[in-house]
Design a protein around this nucleic acid. Structure first.
Lengths: 223, 223
DNA sequence: CCAAAAGTGTTGGTAGTACACCCATGA
DNA sequence: TCATGGGTGTACTACCAACACTTTTGG
């Protein structure tokens, strides 16, 4: 008898704190009290996509519908008790729009900065690592930002987002040239309201139609 | 109770017949007598990779160990009887090195040219379509050919392989320039033995070390 | 006036694309 | 001698990478 589960790697991005990941503290054995990816067993009559959204909602209160399938992990001993095969999903959201609410099998749900992670239960560190790689890959051929930034934002916010996810510095001028050539950003006349010193930047917004078009067609941001 | 299965999309390539796919004719319901991808239920104590190799061997006699995970299909109604979630794998081989031998749940095993496919059981046509897309993608960032061509082969064979998998014409000169720049091919002094008219080409061989290096590092054949 | 962040162009190199004619062979 | 397939080079373009100084603001 093989049990089928789903796990969700939900990355959060804010310009202040960079990348984080949503974890839960397990209420039940195995690994009781330890931190793990949200997830759980698939029910008889739901699809995998439905299962992962449901578990995420149940355990963390986070409700999103654009997770992507990452990989299926099926080593016989990955769960110390029973055989559990897990279909992992991943996604990237802005944490501040959710109110976390641990429930069902979770004692607590919290965002952890990627460089301050606790030890994770099961093989969840592997899953997270793979998700990290895939996320990096993904943003080089698909635009991101629309769901992660404010309606209007200074250009530097988009730049910071790419630098954070790719985890390397980017030349400001070349990046702007490239992004602008895809023509999915519109410059507004408004200016950034500053917190601290520095010249305030113009605010930009996404042209939603062109942005979604390019999500389908694909772009190429090799940096 | 959810059953867990694996399915294999094994593509075959020959320069004469192009791309084909390995199918089996089902011996048991559902879809008895129809053609389907080789695959079957995962056993309690084997990994997913082991399961897919085993099923492939059992049903078709084909023994390979370099399939890659493709995607996991889990719609509740994809199997008309029970709930079956299937982890699909894919790979590309040369058909002529295998002796097909249908066994266990298969009445017959056979290679089908991609444009002469029978109607497939379950959602296997979807799985195949996705595998086709992924295969195309894959050869643009990983060299192929070593396992598919003879030890020594005329350059046109490699060209034909790429044209077949990508399903579009390629400029011979540009392709050669690009491939040669990666430096994993060595030109020999031998010449092709002809079948029919035409100027015989020089034979090439892979530099296995450099080839495997590039498999890891990745290349970029955007054509 | 100093520190912080935004804005802005040019140049050189590299890689990609388009393109056509001659050569060696078998029939 | 014709048909078949192999072999080869150039020129144009587009993209990418590297790079530094000026402007606006807050403190």
């Amino acid at each position: 008898m093989i049990n089928l589960a789903v796990d969700a790697v939900v990355f959060g991005y804010t310009s202040e704190d960079g990348l984080s990941v949503l974890l839960i503290q397990r209420k039940i054995p195995p690994f009781e009290g330890e931190w793990a990816l949200p997830g759980g067993l698939v029910k008889e009559n739901e699809s995998l996509d439905e299962a992962v959204m449901r578990e995420l909602k149940e355990e963390t209160g986070v409700s999103i519908n654009y997770l992507e399938q990452l990989y299926t992990f099926g080593e016989p001993k990955r769960d110390p008790r029973n055989r559990v095969v897990s279909v992992a999903y991943y996604g990237l959201v802005r944490p501040d729009v959710f109110h976390l609410l641990a429930d069902t099998d979770a004692l607590e749900a919290a965002w952890f900065n990627l460089d301050e992670l606790p030890k994770l239960a099961f093989d969840h560190q592997n899953i997270l690592n793979l998700a990290r790689v895939r996320l990096k890959g993904k943003i080089t051929y698909e635009p991101i930002g629309f769901e992660l930034l404010d309606k209007k934002f200074p250009f530097s916010e988009l730049e910071k987002l790419y630098q954070t996810v790719l985890d390397k510095p980017i030349d400001r001028r070349n990046f702007k040239k490239k992004i602008m050539s895809y023509d999915f950003l519109e410059e507004t006349t408004e200016k950034q309201i500053l917190k601290g010193a520095g010249r305030p930047g113009n605010l930009f917004k996404f042209n939603e139609k062109k942005y979604l078009d390019l999500k389908k067609k694909g772009i190429n941001i090799d940096l």
